[in-house]
């Protein structure tokens, strides 16, 4: 018997719309022109896999991860996710500059319905103990990236989605990330990267080109 997929995309087309302009509103349209970002994506990924998403800028890697995280719904097709999802993004969108790392992690625990003691666990996993009570605006880029990784690990997700979180990571953070990617774990890790060393840790590689996904042999 085949194990059920952790993450499945079936015939997924995904469009992102621009904000409606005056002309659109005059035609009673609530959006501007739509741009197709993913097209006909079929994927089945399973627990235990560590899958690297490779591709040029703008190819659709981030969009694919956003769809897997559930913040984008497909125009056509279905995205199915089994288990708790953790989503790590390297930019500042996950952060409120004046709040401490502890406050961010506690908020993530509350919003993801994870136990509060997860704060200490993920902070330890990402070597953040000394930065826990500092506001995000006081952190270096690398420590901030570690905090983003820690936020993604809250609740011990079965499906971990990482969007170029290696950007700005210092050696400690890279070691934590590499450990996460190289240790055989129960869950699925899907990560977008431009880093060849990290991609080499993947058990599978997918290449995204112009919104289409193709498997690539390592």
């Amino acid at each position: 018997m085949t194990a059920p997929a952790c993450l499945e995309f079936s015939g997924v087309d995904l469009e992102v719309c621009a904000r409606a302009g005056l002309g659109d509103l005059a035609r009673l349209r609530l959006t501007g022109p739509a741009r197709r970002v993913l097209e006909g994506v079929n994927l089945k990924l399973y627990a235990g896999q560590r899958v690297a998403l490779l591709g040029a800028n703008g190819a659709g890697k981030t969009t694919l991860l956003r769809a897997a995280a559930g913040v984008l719904s497909p125009a056509r097709g279905v995205v199915r996710v089994t288990g708790r999802v953790g989503w790590g993004v390297a930019d500042d969108r996950a952060f409120h500059r004046r709040l401490t790392v502890r406050a961010h992690l506690a908020l993530a625990c509350a919003l993801l319905d994870a136990p509060s003691h997860e704060v200490d666990r993920v902070a330890a996993a990402c070597a953040l103990a000394s930065a826990l009570d500092q506001p995000v605006e006081a952190l270096s880029t690398g420590v901030r990236a570690r905090a983003a990784l820690a936020r993604a690990l809250v609740g011990a997700p079965e499906v971990l989605l990482l969007d170029e979180v290696e950007r700005g990571l210092d050696s400690v953070g890279r070691a934590a990330l590499a450990e996460r990617l190289s240790t055989p774990a129960g869950g699925l890790v899907l990560f977008a990267t431009h880093d060849a060393q990290l991609a080499a840790l993947a058990s599978h590689v997918l290449r995204v080109e112009a919104g289409r996904v193709a498997p690539e042999v390592l």
């Binding site: 913040v71 993004v89 409120h96 919003l111």
Partner: peptide, 9 residues
């Protein structure tokens, strides 16, 4: 961009 992060759960 924090809205997406908050509503991901």
């Amino acid at each position: 961009g924090g809205l997406e992060v908050d509503l991901q759960g």
